[in-house]
Structure formats: structure tokens, C-alpha cells
Design a protein around this nucleic acid. Structure first.
Lengths: 241, 241
DNA sequence: CAGTGGTCTAGACCACCTC
DNA sequence: AGGTGGTCTAGACCACTGG
């Protein structure tokens, strides 16, 4: 009869509290959160319950445990996180270091599509920029990246050019925006003239088109990008479980 | 000095025992395994330890828990598992029912590549067959599938044609081979004449090329396939975490 | 050495399913 | 009512880190 009472176990409530603290930037990326004992005392539950809450946050890549040291907020500045979202590998299976080359940048107002995808009002400001990813000197990826203007108001290509590190570590450090998960949609398309030129391939040659929406905490979309990948001797690697 | 003693916690040893039982087909797909209490008694450990072992097997998609009922061996016959490995969706985001149409089948001896990928001796028998996947009547995927001959000796296209259900549920039921995880490598390629014809697209038009290696327990490769996906109004969907 | 996460136990109780 | 998995606790001990 009555609707289900939406029972929520204690450890999920603790998890929600931790998530709120993460969102409020109580602890910065790369820093340790309080010990399990401390958190247990703070929330008035047993260590095991805190532990289970943390377990889930670790499974979602928001936290990492380091035995003997503590539990830390995941940071894109961590070298192990650099290529978490970049699935392009050489055909022999080797991961190759990529370097980002910013191209251009401009501001605009969100149209229908950007407004829907980024969940911002129609006409609100957005920042758009393009960059090329080079693998072993070769330009293999051309990305066009759309950001909500309110979160990235101070964005400038010059600051990005000086940045040593991944794009997401730049976002994390300069704008406090932490990328947590992403969805990608892949298609095969024919290269148009401009894209072909920038990637050094023939016009009409097949490219992998990758559209990505990236989310921060609580499934809030904060980045939309469209990329063209030249996959002649590289491929997009994926694991299915 | 001495090499690390390779400490393995109790629950991992229990996990290994459960894995062995799964591999030995002590419990069939879709069936319940013994209760946590029973397993704890059998192995002489506490319920919590068995629980943690099962936790990991659940995380790896080998088992599923059903509260109040028991813990079950995952089966590809389960409707929720049907499309676990098929990432093609319509551009509006809807999942579309696919129907498999077998084309042809032949036997061969493993060459260099098949031998390496399937980890079988050079020259050992393999079974090869092709099939088309239709979405809303339209042929969108052409797969060429390579199987080790010893595991799939009795494979026949006629049996497959009569099968109602997914290919992997067919493999599971007829050959006792359970697909557990897969790796895919994606590229954009131009359609050759034959493929273009079968998918009803223009020659040289861009196709998504998907190479998959599928594994059963203990990372044993048991399937290799090469597929061409027509992605004009469909896309390959992927989540990055 | 003290402090952290990691393992293991035993027991109590809750939520869900089936009969 | 009796079984299953799911939660929560308290306490003991182990493995790893760093001063």
C-alpha cells in the first residue's frame, strides 16, 4: 500500500556526509581526509560503518586508500590519474605520452544543445576552446571543448599554455572543478577539410569521433567536448566487464 | 632482502576456492551457490570472511546477490545480461533490440595472429563464423568470430540459427563456456566493397571497427572477433570512471 | 614507536523472500 | 516461521608507513 519507505542504511548516510564535505572542499585534492577512527567519533558510529562508506567512495574513484598513511582525495595531479580518461593507445598496446597544444578560444552564449547537455540556461555564457593532442610529435586528436562560463569565467588560453600537466589537473587547480566521471559516444566519420589539415590526414579519411560529457560530484555536467581521433596506428582501448 | 612473502588474506584464499568451484562447474549459471553460513562452515571461517570473498566476485560480475533469496552464478541467459557486452545505442540514447543473423561458417588452422590472441598452438583447429546484427531490421554490425576448435568442436550454424537468445547464452548453454570480461580496440576505417554491401552503406564510407578478445575465468581468452559497425544514426556508448 | 588502513571474528538485529 | 542476504557493532590483531 504505502510507498516504499526508502530505507537508507547508516553507511550510506555517512557516505552522503563525506560527499558533502568533498563537494564543499573541506579537504583538497591530494590531501588526506581524517582517519577512520576520527570520522567514526565525529559521526558517532563504529569504524566499520565509516569504512564501508569510504569503500564506496573509493570504488567511485573519489578517494584512494594508502595503507599505513591514510585515505586521500583523488587528484588529477596524481600521475596515475593523468590518463584516466584518455583511452588512446598505440596499436602494439603501449601507452604513449601525450602533449596538449592549445589552438584558440572564444566565448559564446549557450545554444539549445549546449544548454541541454551542460544543464545551464539558454543563452548563458560558455567558454569554447580547441586543442590538439600530440603523441610522439604527431597530432592525433583535435578537441573542441565547451565549458560553462560561470564556473570557468577566468579561463584563458595563456594560462593553459603555461600549465604543465593534464587539462583536468588545470581545471582542478585553477577553478576547483574536479572531474569525477564521464560518458562518451563514439562514431566513425569522414574527415572534413579543416580537421584533416590539422591532423595531417587526407580529406574524407575515416576518423573516430568522440563526444564526451564530463561530470563532477552529484552528476553535475561541467564539460562537453567533441573530439576527432586519427586511428591509423592508434586505437581506442576499452574494457568490458 | 628476501622477496616479499606474498601475503594473501584469508578472504582471497576463500575467493580462489570459490573461483575454482565456479570453473569446475560445481554450480551452473543461474543457480544459487550455498548460503554464506554454509560456505563459512565448509571453509572453517566466519561468515564475514566468506562475505568479503563473495563481494569481490560480485564486483567482477561472476556472482549476483539477491536479498532474501541467495547468491547466484551470473548467466548470459539472464535478460539483464543480454546486452552487457554490446555498446551500440541509437543516437537519441535508446537501447534497441538486436537480432542476430548467422551468415556462414568454416574451419581453419590457427595462424600466427589467432594463435597469439587465443593462446593456442599454431596450427590448432579454429572455428570461424560471420553474422550480422540487425537493429530495427537494419543490418548495422558485421562480425567475424574466431573460436578455439577444441572448446567449440560441435559448433554448427544450424544449431545457432535455432537458438533464441544471445550468442553468449548459446555458448554458455551448449559449450559450457562462460564469457566473463572482454577487451575492445576501436578504430575508424573505410568500408571495403563486401562489407559495405552487407551493411547497406556506400563503399569507402566510415565504419567503426571493433576488435574484441573475450575471456573466461582466470583470464583465459576464448573468443576473438572483428566487427564493423555502421554508426550513422547509432553510436558506441562508454562510461569512464 | 605510534598511527594508519586491512583483516578477522562473533554476535545481534534488520530487510526481504518463500512457504 | 524460517531462510537468505544486509547492516552494525566492538574488539583483537596484522601490515605498512614514517618519525
Amino acid at each position: 500500500m504505502a510507498p516504499s519507505p526508502a530505507f537508507s542504511p547508516l553507511y550510506r548516510q555517512i557516505k552522503a556526509l563525506l560527499l558533502k564535505s568533498l563537494e564543499a572542499r573541506e579537504w583538497r585534492p591530494g590531501e588526506a581526509i581524517p582517519s577512520e577512527q576520527e570520522l567514526a567519533a565525529r559521526f558517532g558510529v563504529s569504524q566499520g560503518t565509516v569504512r564501508k562508506a569510504i569503500d564506496e567512495l573509493v570504488a567511485e574513484n573519489l578517494l584512494v586508500r594508502k595503507q599505513g598513511k591514510g585515505t586521500f582525495v583523488v587528484s588529477h595531479s596524481d600521475p596515475r590519474q593523468f590518463y584516466r580518461f584518455l583511452r588512446l593507445r598505440r596499436d602494439d598496446g603501449e601507452w604513449v605520452q601525450a602533449t596538449s597544444v592549445p589552438i584558440d578560444c572564444w566565448r559564446a552564449k549557450a545554444g539549445q544543445e549546449a544548454s541541454r547537455i551542460l544543464q545551464i540556461p539558454l543563452g548563458s555564457p560558455i567558454v569554447i576552446f580547441r586543442r590538439v593532442l600530440r603523441f610522439a610529435q604527431k597530432p592525433l586528436v583535435l578537441d573542441e571543448i565547451y565549458l560553462p562560463g560561470d564556473l570557468f569565467a577566468a579561463f584563458s588560453l595563456d594560462a593553459l599554455k603555461e600549465w604543465r600537466g593534464s587539462l583536468y589537473s588545470f581545471f582542478e587547480n585553477r577553478f576547483g572543478v574536479r572531474m569525477v566521471r564521464a560518458e562518451e559516444r563514439l562514431k566513425a566519420v569522414a574527415a572534413d577539410r579543416v580537421t584533416a589539415e590539422m591532423l595531417g590526414v587526407a580529406e574524407r579519411s575515416p576518423l573516430l569521433f568522440v563526444e564526451r560529457v564530463t561530470y563532477t560530484y552529484n552528476d553535475r555536467p561541467v564539460e562537453w567536448r567533441k573530439g576527432f581521433y586519427a586511428t591509423e596506428s592508434y586505437h581506442y582501448y576499452n574494457e568490458l566487464t
